[in-house]
Simulated assay, not measured.
Amino acid sequence: MNVILSHPQDTDAIWLYLELQKNHVEIELVSPEELLMAEEWTQNINNDDDQFYIKTKKGLEITHNNLNFLFNRTQIAIAPVWDKAQETERQYVQSEMNALMMSWLAQVNNKGRIYNPGKGYSLCGVYWSRQQWANAAYKAGFSSVSSENNLNVNQESVLVIGKKVISNCCNKQLVENCVKLSLLAQTPLLEIYINKDDENQFVSANTYPALSKYGDKLIAILKHIIYEN
């Protein structure tokens, strides 16, 4: 089973789902809200198998044995049934739901089947400060980093998907730097912005990119990744 995990309002995830279907990829579109209101959710986290079983109210069964690939776009973890509760109760529930979702994403990640895994307090890739991104960019090989006062530079986006890169740039060193930055962030799907006038200058990074702008190239890479698994 291959799953896109995204919120109902995520139009880029819907685009991805429809395009993969057009390309004959067996894929399910599931929301975090559906999982958090599942009919059954079982996890065994004290063994080497990282076993789990989730059955949604629609009858979809997701297990450690049948989940091949998870494309994760989760931003928050909250069960809608708590929307009308008091603020303190909602905060408590959101904290618990976040922990539950994070533990499950970690199990999936242990099997190497997820783009993007949760990191720290973020459910989808790292959530780094500008300084952390700057430090990682230097380690990845970028020669300079755009200052906060210079973020309106002429930018070019580069999308890293695993070890593949979608970019209009032909600089081999830039490709290597971008892949290395993705590895340092432990975030296999990463959009990186560089200075168009200086491809060795890092501007910023985004773990929640607009997918549709990468079109058929993205679909082809994901199709390969899904079936390679």
Rank of each mutant, 00 (worst) to 15 (best):
Leu16Glu: 07
Leu18Ser: 05
Leu20Ser: 02
Ile27Ser: 09
Glu28Pro: 00
Leu29Asp: 01
Ser31Pro: 01
Glu33Ile: 13
Glu34Gln: 13
Leu35Asn: 04
Leu35Ala: 11
Gln43Cys: 09
Gln43Ala: 12
Asn47Ala: 13
Phe52Asp: 12
Thr56Ser: 11
Gly59Trp: 00
Leu60Ala: 07
His64Leu: 06
His64Ala: 11
Leu70Cys: 04
Leu70Val: 07
Phe71His: 04
Asn72Arg: 07
Arg73Val: 08
Trp82Leu: 08
Trp82Met: 05
Asp83Arg: 00
Thr88Met: 15
Thr88Gly: 07
Arg90Ala: 10
Gln91Tyr: 03
Gln91Cys: 06
Gln94Leu: 05
Gln94Tyr: 04
Glu96Tyr: 11
Asn98Cys: 10
Asn98Tyr: 05
Met102Ile: 03
Leu105Asn: 08
Gln107Cys: 10
Arg113Phe: 06
Ile114Gln: 06
Ser122Pro: 08
Val126Trp: 03
Val126Cys: 09
Val126Thr: 12
Gln132Met: 11
Gln132Ala: 12
Ala140Arg: 03
Gly141Val: 11
Ser143Phe: 01
Val145Cys: 13
Asn150Glu: 13
Asn152Met: 07
Val153Trp: 01
Gln155Phe: 01
Val158Arg: 02
Val160Arg: 06
Ile161Val: 15
Ile161Thr: 07
Gly162Arg: 03
Val165Leu: 12
Ile166Ala: 06
Ser167Thr: 15
Lys172Ile: 14
Gln173Ile: 13
Leu174Phe: 01
Glu176Leu: 10
Leu184Lys: 03
Glu191Leu: 15
Ile192Asn: 04
Ile192Glu: 01
Ile194Phe: 11
Ile194Met: 14
Asn195Val: 13
Asp197His: 10
Asn200Trp: 10
Asn200Cys: 14
Gln201Trp: 01
Val203Met: 13
Ala205Val: 09
Asn206Phe: 13
Tyr208Ser: 13
Ala210Val: 15
Lys217Tyr: 06
Ile219Gln: 11
His224Val: 06
Ile225Pro: 00
Tyr227His: 14
